[in-house]
Amino acid sequence: MPGPNEYFNVPLSRVAVGDTNEFRQPGAIKAAVAEFISTLVFVFAGSGSGIAYNKLTGNAPSSPSGIISAAIAHGFGLFVAVAIGANISGGHVNPAVTFGLFVGGNITLIRGILYIIAQLLGSVAACALLAFTTGGLEVPAFALSGVNVWQAFVFEIVMTFGLVYTVYATAVDPKKGEIGIIAPIAIGFIVGANILAGGAFTGASMNPAVSFGPALVSFTWTHHWVYWAGPLVGGGLAGVVYEIFFINHTHEPLTEF
């Protein structure tokens, strides 16, 4: 009788802590720098569009046009950010993506921590630059609107699940074939679509780094845990689901994405 692993891959069997020497390896350092720059580019464009819209409209970010503006800016910005980092770090640009790849055994814990630190620093740097270059205009932090914290928590889980599932299907799956070419644009599109769906309720973060930079610069921490817990749970679930049901590993060594 076939063993259970002949039907399903067990992702946690491939999870690896890694070696602390990774912090000093030139390849890992280059990858972290790439994540810093990609996240800076993404957050500067995304949060910058929000600041510009607020300035032009008198602070009406929750209007239909404001949400459409945010969806376009974040979708385009993420497309570019993923594309410019893909050949160096994999273009995660998001701690939830990094975590989803870690639970699927596609990146070590040590390198994942390095990526997340770089992503957070990139977001903070982008928001500090925005505050300076706009003459001190407020960098808007993510906030709930018309939903309670548990509804927002589930909203962020579902949206981030869709994002990380898209990453797996278009960039991680070894059977992706030519569809891998459009991975950055597919990832940008799902983020833009999710902002149209959830922007009026949670701001549609799907990314702890995107939430952390504005929260730190504006020092606004209300319900901030939602923007960490929701994306990390959603990203982790997507990684486990895709690895179990759709990727068939045959004991090959762990490879970094």
Score class of each variant (00 low, 15 high):
Gly236Asp: 02
Val167Asn: 04
Pro61Val: 01
His223Ile: 00
Pro11Gln: 09
Val43Leu: 14
Ser47Glu: 11
Gly234Pro: 03
Asn248Lys: 15
Leu237Asp: 01
Gly188Pro: 06
Val80His: 06
Phe76Gly: 03
Val82Tyr: 01
Thr250Leu: 11
Gly199Ile: 03
Trp221Pro: 01
Leu78Ser: 08
Ala118Thr: 12
Pro11Met: 03
Pro64Val: 00
Asn59Ala: 13
Val43Lys: 07
Gly85Thr: 07
Val147Arg: 06
Tyr53Ser: 08
Val172Pro: 09
Ala169Val: 02
Val210Ile: 05
Ala238Asn: 09
Val15Ile: 14
Gly58Arg: 05
Ala169His: 14
Phe36Glu: 03
Pro95Met: 10
Gln151Tyr: 03
Leu130Arg: 04
Thr250Tyr: 12
Pro214Asp: 12
Val41Ser: 05
Cys127Ser: 06
Met206Trp: 05
Asn207Met: 10
Phe189Pro: 00
Thr98Asn: 09
Lys175Ser: 14
Met159Asn: 04
Phe132Tyr: 13
Val97Gln: 03
Ala131Phe: 14
Ile182Thr: 11
Tyr53Phe: 15
Gly199Trp: 03
Val149Pro: 00
Ala52Cys: 01
Gly188Ser: 04
Leu114Glu: 14
Gly77Ala: 15
Ala70Phe: 01
Gly105Leu: 06
Gly192Ala: 11
Gly50Ile: 01
Ala128Ser: 12
Asn207Gln: 10
Gly177Thr: 09
Gly146Glu: 05
Ala83Asp: 07
Gly112Gln: 10
Val124Asn: 10
Ala16Ile: 00
Phe76Val: 15
Ala34Gly: 12
Gly203Asp: 07
Gly230Gln: 08
Thr57Trp: 00
Ser38Tyr: 04
Val147Lys: 06
Ala81Gly: 07
Gly135His: 05
Asn248Pro: 00
Asn248Gly: 02
Val147Leu: 05
Ala131Asp: 09
Pro208Phe: 11
Thr202Pro: 11
Ser205Lys: 05
Ala70Lys: 07
Val210Phe: 13
Ala126Ser: 11
Ile181Gln: 13
Ala143Ile: 00
Asn207Thr: 10
Thr166Lys: 08
Leu78Arg: 08
Ala28Asn: 13
Gly50Asp: 01
Phe79Gly: 15
Gly85Tyr: 06
Phe36Ile: 12
Ser123Gly: 15
Ala71Pro: 01
Ile107Glu: 05
Phe201Pro: 03
Asn9Arg: 14
Gly46Tyr: 06
Gln119Asp: 12
Val240Trp: 01
Ile247Leu: 06
Met159His: 03
Glu22Asn: 03
Phe132Ala: 14
Gly3Arg: 12
Ala131Arg: 15
Ser218Asp: 14
